[in-house]
Design a protein around this nucleic acid. Structure first.
Lengths: 331, 331
DNA sequence: ATCTGGCGAGAGAGCGCTCTCTCACATCCC
DNA sequence: GGGATGTGAGAGAGCGCTCTCTCGCCAGAT
């Protein structure tokens, strides 16, 4: 007992397969009474088109690969940014009836797998999330003749349209907030320097410090809580008198807050802390975290629009979304 | 300029399409020198099989739907349990060369979509994550003739093999820890009662309290941080003298800790707190959270094994994984 | 030398669908 | 009334692959 085919529908409705196909695909050149008859046959048989057969002839698959190129540290499963982005992208794609094929690329082996899969024409387009500098995937994918968009500016110079938030501007706003509240020795815990978000936020920090004639004090983490704690301890060792720290993301800020607590520093009295991302957890730290919010869901939606636009030869222009300073108690 | 077909490979190697197909599918009945010739042709042309054509004839798709049936509250993007589970499941599936089709089912509309898609034969099997009691999806999917496994015991009585952790046993261990450390008035913040994890952890709590002759004090949350904070405030109102609280998951425990702090209670001196899940954030709360760890990655792997087994008519026996008490400073 | 087996390779059908091409028939204008 | 135009439906090819069936060929047995 296999699933009904278009042939069966056509037979039941007393029309040809071609006509049944026209009804299924909502083509207009079908007389109303015939359309009704076919529709009835479809309902009665519970007909569902076979997508394999369809893509075989149309050369479309109606599915999009969501490639998460994970750096060594397992940011993906821990950083809510990723799941939120995936969730939003998935939601937007479902709205336009595209399937989402999730591919996690971590090892070189899986990179090869992804590349093979993509170039195998199994998907109509690719959304690439979070790649680090050494990632060969953006370059590899941009060579294929599959439309690709990136969540965040690619870390390597490669011609892929992307949607990003204003990392530099956001960091500047965050650091400026610290300057304006009278902090003198403002350190930073930068994100990984092979990621654009890491680089750009550090750039923003440096821009403001330069303009306000302060010395920069930098430690580098990898966007995990643990690296935030380690970097904070290092900063306290380097400059025990620091009175503020701008942290590259909220996750590291959580680690930094813990390190400050363990070092006996009060926040914000002794040290002010500003994070970046405004993840949900930022409301629940002790004290609640001042941070920079950017619209992840909107970013994902914009990325989907960009990709869908590409299918019709639309704009390849990058989209940059603004950030917003959310002042809580930590700074 | 389209992609090379098997026909092209066969022509280049000077063999028939059938033989080329045998080489591609690693069949043994091919003479070594012919195999080599075909392989060379494949490499030279960069041939990649067209999966649509293949599934059309084999009736297999080599892809698995990962259906995340989301309750109203957007646990998915916030609860690291989900992303970890998805990550692990995806990883395991890639290892056996299955594609992962991610489907987020939140609205009734998307439920219908998922059901249509699954019954359309687009996937070989389904992995269902996190459904709540009112979820019609498990029942609907179990009716289709597609193998389905569930991450966590389904909340409705339905014949779907599943992998779960020992929620009752874990909760008992957590509450027993509180009893043994001399706590007298032990409250609980239970998870949503339309989720098995919510129910079972409450059951474990009740079991121990009954045996140790204590009164149960219950508030209910929905597994989000915010609900944890609200529930904690409610508990403090109900019984200001409580000296311990067992929280249904770590996320709610984070909220509870904040509420306790705001109410001026010291943890663990005044109130001991035990969570459940051992998410990464549990190490970074103030104070670090005592909680119950369960192996999410293993659970996902076991689920994949279960599903793959089903394809070969293997066991439908549920798998229950143990939990482990992780003692930190909160209790 | 003939027959039987077995094994490696090819021929060809067909998976379920779309889409072009063709055709029948109705409509319209001169 | 006859040709031009339009419109709705069917015929049939073919997307790229797998897989059964068949056949040719060689080794070994008779």
């Amino acid at each position: 007992m296999r699933r009904p085919t278009l042939e069966a529908v056509a037979a039941r409705a007393g029309v040809s397969r071609a006509t049944a196909s026209r009804v299924v695909n909502n083509q207009t050149t079908v007389a109303p009474h015939i359309r009704d008859a076919v529709q009835r046959a479809i309902d009665e048989l519970g007909y569902i088109p076979n997508s394999a057969a369809r893509s075989l002839v149309t050369q479309r698959t109606d599915s999009i690969a969501l490639v998460v190129s994970e750096p060594g540290t397992r940011v993906f499963s821990e950083d809510p940014m990723f799941s939120t982005a995936i969730r939003s992208a998935s939601y937007e794609l479902e709205a336009v009836n595209k399937q989402v094929v999730l591919m996690l690329a971590s090892s070189p082996k899986s990179h090869a797998r992804v590349e093979r899969y993509i170039s195998g024409g199994h998907v109509d387009g690719v959304m690439l999330i979070s790649m680090h500098g050494a990632d060969p995937l953006p370059a590899a994918l941009s060579r294929l003749r599959v439309p690709v968009v990136s969540y965040g500016r690619p870390a390597v110079p490669v011609d892929i349209p992307f949607v990003d938030n204003d990392n530099v501007g956001g960091a500047e706003a965050g650091v400026r907030h610290l300057v304006e509240s009278g902090r003198r020795r403002i350190a930073t815990i930068a994100g990984p320097q092979d990621m654009i978000a890491g680089q750009d936020r550090l750039t923003g920090y440096r821009n403001v410090l330069r303009d306000s004639d302060r010395r920069s004090i930098v430690a580098v983490g990898d966007f995990t809580r643990e690296s935030g704690a380690i970097a904070m301890r290092q900063l306290l060792g380097d400059d025990p008198a620091l009175d503020a720290v701008f942290v590259g993301n909220d996750l590291m800020a959580v680690g930094a807050l813990q390190a400050l607590r363990q070092a006996g520093r009060r926040v914000p009295d002794d040290v002010a802390v500003v994070g970046f991302d405004d993840i949900e957890a930022a409301k629940y730290t002790e004290p609640p975290l001042t941070t920079l919010r950017h619209p992840i869901a909107e970013q994902a939606a914009a990325m989907v629009r960009l990709l869908l636009g590409l299918f019709e030869g639309g704009s390849r222009e990058p989209v940059i979304l603004p950030t917003e300073l959310v002042v809580r108690e930590s700074a």
